[in-house]
């Protein structure tokens, strides 16, 4: 009886085998692009979302073949890059500073495959590094925040306490001090582990605390935790500043502006360059100059910023581009 049962089980099991090739990959001539997203995943409405949008736009407009994966932990990154490289993908894009080591290692082992890395620098001859001058954009929104506050208090909430997020804060504080040196700044970080990028509840708590102390504008750089700060701003009828993607639409009227970091544009143009065989290895820095970082202005926040303030901001922007204003860079000062 037992044996009969086992046989029955085996035969059902082997039936499955006949259905094997459920999804066979079609052989195509199209460019194959692999996108390795960071732990935040493609729905963080911020950094990874921007990269994913840029790549999917390229898929639509340039007719490439896109495959994206999300990292499970630090050790899986190298594995994912290696898998893409083994399958002869034309371009592999790593999103986030955490992938620097993986890209460095795999790109030297697969010299024929092209790589791009966002937010990190790798100097191999087949790697393009896409870097952003976040401190410049943060300086601008800092200046705007200082113009907006009447109490003389502004806030900053960072996600995880790491150098990149310190770079935002340093630029932001410099921007505030540039407009009014006496402004008081409250600075908080959500956490010390990766979980900080996805903890809106704690972000809201911190924001409420800051608003209760008289803060009127909070700049928040915390990935998916940002929504907590936006909720707090709505509750207290105060202002918040978003980050990376244009987040003005999330709570219209309460989001003063967003510090844009155009990862989408950088990713798209990298793919476009490859398609037109103009791909160049090396570092490319996106700053205020080429609108790689910027502040956002759209129908959701145009009422919040007066013409006068807008003019002032544009002057500051030009001064930064011309080099009249030197924005302190956390990365440089650390060394």
């Amino acid at each position: 009886m037992f044996r009969a049962n086992l046989l029955g089980f085996l035969s059902i099991f082997s039936l499955f085998l006949f259905f094997m090739p459920f999804n066979t990959l079609l052989a195509t001539e199209r460019l194959k692009i692999g996108l390795v997203l960071d732990k935040g995943g493609k729905d963080d409405k911020s950094f990874n979302s921007a990269a994913f949008e840029g790549a999917s736009l390229a898929e639509k407009q340039l007719g490439i073949e896109l495959k994206y994966v999300e990292a499970t932990d630090v050790n899986s990154l190298e594995n994912l890059h290696r898998q893409f490289a083994k399958k002869n993908y034309d371009l592999i894009i790593g999103v986030g500073f955490a992938q620097v080591d993986a890209v460095k290692k795999i790109s030297s082992q697969f010299p024929k495959v092209k790589f791009a890395i966002v937010d990190g620098e790798v100097t191999n001859p087949n790697v393009k590094s896409l870097l952003f001058e976040e401190h410049q954009g943060s300086f601008l929104v800092g200046a705007l925040a200082a113009m907006k506050t009447k109490t003389g208090k502004v806030g900053y909430i960072g996600g995880m306490d790491i150098p990149l997020i310190r770079r935002f804060s340093k630029g932001y504080i410099a921007g505030i001090k540039y407009v009014s040196p006496k402004t008081q700044i409250l600075e908080n970080y959500i956490g010390v582990s990766g979980e900080a990028w996805n903890n809106p509840a704690k972000a809201k708590e911190l924001a409420l605390n800051q608003y209760n102390q008289g803060v009127e504008v909070i700049f928040v750089a915390a990935g998916a935790s940002n929504s907590g700060v936006f909720d707090a701003a709505e509750e207290k009828k105060k202002l918040a500043i978003g980050v990376d993607s244009n987040q003005n639409w999330i709570k219209p009227g309460f989001i003063l502006t967003s510090m844009l970091k155009r990862v989408d544009r950088a990713v798209f143009s990298t793919i476009e360059d490859l398609k037109n065989s103009k791909f160049l290895a090396g570092s490319q820095r996106y700053g205020l100059k080429d609108k790689g970082v910027d502040y956002s202005l759209d129908k959701y926040n145009e009422k919040l910023i007066s013409n006068e303030e807008r003019k002032k901001l544009e002057t500051i922007k030009e001064d930064i581009i011309k080099g009249k204003i030197q924005v302190p860079d956390y990365y440089l000062e650390k060394k």
Binding site: N23, G41, T72, L80
Partner: peptide, 20 residues
């Protein structure tokens, strides 16, 4: 299984990281 999670994401269209 932990190693398989990222490979499943890579090899299939529907099994994402969260699905694993």
């Amino acid at each position: 299984l932990h190693k398989g999670a990222s490979d499943l994401d890579f090899e299939t269209e529907t099994i994402t990281r969260d699905f694993s």
